[in-house]
Design a protein around this nucleic acid. Structure first.
Lengths: 126, 126
DNA sequence: GAAGCATATTCTCGCGAAGGAATATGTTTC
DNA sequence: GAAACATATTCCTTCGCGAGAATATGCTTC
């Protein structure tokens, strides 16, 4: 994976937020939408952008599309390094920390549903 | 310094090469030009881009403009983290390694001039 | 002060990317 | 199979960026 391509994915605020959240584990679009509070088109298109560049994978789960970072074995050294770096930097970034806090709340709110779906974190409006 | 701004600077191949080289120490434009083998306008404009975003500083030295990374004390944690990450990633990148090799050669070739100028690495065509 | 040098700036072009509105696709439920 | 739902795609507009040619700026030397 080319280094510049990784930076191209990281250089947009929305994508940065998405990748940051996905570092916590797989998430479906409606989750991401609920946290980012951005229009559906916007989120869907940025996820598409990340997918075509291999920074994200998708699987369908009923009505939902569940996005995730590539399996650990499939991550290039550059990607691993930059994801780690992002984790570090996120602690200085109020916005990213807020996203994370919202995610934790969702996890709690959806605990039953998540358990049923067995993913540990499927969509909570189901 | 905003995280996204840093990534915006890193997401162009030319700028990536420039920043990578500057991690070795200050360099004048003609040095960078000699290593990258790109037209003068291109290099100058990308250096300008980096400067307006605070990722690089300049000082004039006679006819030459000497570019450098910000003083260590002036680097945000995000910048420090990403520069370190870049160093790591550079070892997987053949192009960046080649740039580095060329830089070492220049250092040797210009040793006398560099000594005179006292910067340890001023322009070698002087 | 004129000439020569290193570098920056301006102008213009083409392209790709971001955003939003509307619409399409694929899945589930009844 | 129709309705409801989650998500993707298309179409359009706007905007900033990258590239190159030509020109300007600022310093030095004679």
């Amino acid at each position: 994976m080319e280094l510049v391509k990784i930076y191209e994915c990281l250089c947009d605020r929305t994508r940065l937020r998405l990748l940051h959240l996905l570092q916590q584990g797989p998430l479906c679009v409606c989750h991401l939408q609920g946290i980012l509070r951005e229009p559906q088109v916007k989120i869907s298109k940025h996820l598409g952008y990340l997918r075509t560049r291999g920074l994200v994978t998708v699987r369908r789960e009923g009505n939902w599309m569940v996005y995730a970072l590539p399996a650990t074995a499939d991550r290039s050294p550059e990607l691993v390094a930059n994801l780690a770096c992002l984790q570090d930097c996120a602690q200085e970034d109020a916005g990213l920390k807020r996203d994370l806090a919202k995610l934790k709340q969702l996890d709690l709110a959806c605990a039953p549903v998540a358990a049923v779906r067995g993913t540990g974190r499927a969509c909570c409006r189901g």
